[in-house]
Design a protein around this nucleic acid. Structure first.
Lengths: 249, 249
DNA sequence: GCAGTTAACTGATCTATATCATGGAAGCTG
DNA sequence: CAGCTTCCATGATATAGATCAGTTAACTGC
């Protein structure tokens, strides 16, 4: 078996990013939201965004803070979680370039219900909820698109409730790895590398399990050659076998 | 202890409902969606809705059906769930008068991800996703309102993931009872009656537990005088104590 | 390259909750 | 109201996974 114990993940430097205007325009143009707009409209909207750099592990906002901004990941990986008592957090989502977070609903709830933390160094664009509201009013198609983003997340959240409720730990880990592979996977000569620094504890917080249980299951998968994994990284070697582990039985 | 073993719940007849135009207008006018519209606009929109009656236990749609309609509960209680293998369902939500369900996103996913079943006899209004889309395009404020509905549900779903992941069965049952009381509670001389036919199995499907475990916990709560409960009904006698059971500890 | 730190592994034990099995009560039906 | 069906209660037993504790391996910074 390949004994590659060094992490294959690009952790980018811990230096702060600075997001250029160019990068901002490119990111905004790529968003499903804004694909219908022309360059002029895009530039006008771009004016209303701020950009901010974050270092690894830095917090963007905390659960309970008054929520007055909508954020877009321009570069880096962001983790959203609900903090629990004494380290018992629940990891809700890992976001990458182009993903929206924060207050998407203009006049919805008044405080953030989750905490956002930068997993790598990152560049984040943000806009005040008020400005965002004005944009939505102006372009109704954008509101419908945000509805679709919300729906996707609601369906994902319900799927997760279902999985936690009905599957044993091993299968919960499998579906989580598959989802992560789908979203963050980079094809390499060593299989599908999950391109974000994910710890056993992170996986535990995603699967409603303990780090120890995750460790045991992951080790077993490694021994079977289904995955390869080390400190803060995971690579899926055999997708087919992994998928089979959760098929109807 | 009060030994009221007869069900206090109004089960309405198992006859089909028929929704009058009057009822339809009243329901639509009450929706957070449509509160901004005047009578003429409301009447125009009302035209585009169908109404349909369902008997107790009847299905409105199944998970996997192609989703081309948005629904509104006009009368009765609807349960949404994800069907699992061999009776291991997961109950997602219980809806009452005024609640929306089905395809809220116009051009989102193409099949329903849950199954909708009438808990009582009920009257349901529905509109094609296309018509609904046209309405949203016409009134951007409505799209923003649906965004808020979606956000509320997403937050609730995430809260549930958190609870299932971090709380023991007893506390999961408590938070579920509190939520049900909040949403479906009717103040009576016998405490807050949860005004829907909820079985131990339903509660189990809401709390990721087994009916047996639910039964044991509920019995214990009855012995402590916190709740009263019988076949297909639950009443909360002591809200304060119930709340205390899930406070930080 | 070495010391210190954090993450991952692994064995032993414990426990909350599932499972299995049975009996009993509430409501419904003719 | 007798008989049937469905829901609920409850005891005995089993077990997945948590907890506790100690070791090992990878990365970080001087």
């Amino acid at each position: 078996m390949n004994k590659r114990r060094k992490s294959p993940i690009q952790m980018i430097s811990t230096e702060e990013h600075h997001c250029s205007i160019d990068l901002r325009l490119k990111i905004l143009g790529r968003l499903p939201f804004f694909t219908d707009l022309n360059q002029t409209q895009l530039k006008a909207i771009n004016q209303r965004f701020n950009s901010l750099g974050f270092t690894k592990d830095e917090y963007i906002y905390f659960s309970g803070d008054t929520s007055e901004r909508m954020f877009v990941v321009a570069e880096g990986k962001i983790k959203l979680f609900q903090p629990g008592f004494e380290k018992r957090n629940v990891l809700l989502n890992i976001l990458l370039e182009g993903d929206l977070f924060g207050n998407l609903t203009v006049f919805g709830s008044s405080t953030y219900t989750d905490t956002a933390q930068s997993l790598t160094s990152s560049c984040i664009l943000s806009i005040s909820s008020q400005s965002f509201g004005e944009i939505l009013e102006e372009y109704p198609s954008l509101a419908i698109k945000s509805l679709q983003v919300m729906e996707k997340r609601l369906i994902a959240a319900n799927k997760r409730v279902f999985e936690i409720s009905t599957l044993p730990v091993e299968q919960r880990i499998v579906v989580t790895l598959l989802t992560l592979g789908e979203k963050l996977g980079k094809k390499t000569d060593q299989g599908v590398l999950i391109d974000a620094p994910i710890s056993r504890e992170d996986l535990a917080e995603m699967t409603a399990a303990t780090p120890e249980s995750v460790s045991r299951v992951m080790k077993q998968f490694q021994n079977n050659g289904i995955i390869d994994s080390g400190r803060l990284w995971v690579s899926i070697l055999d997708l087919a076998v992994l998928r089979k582990l959760v098929e109807i039985e």
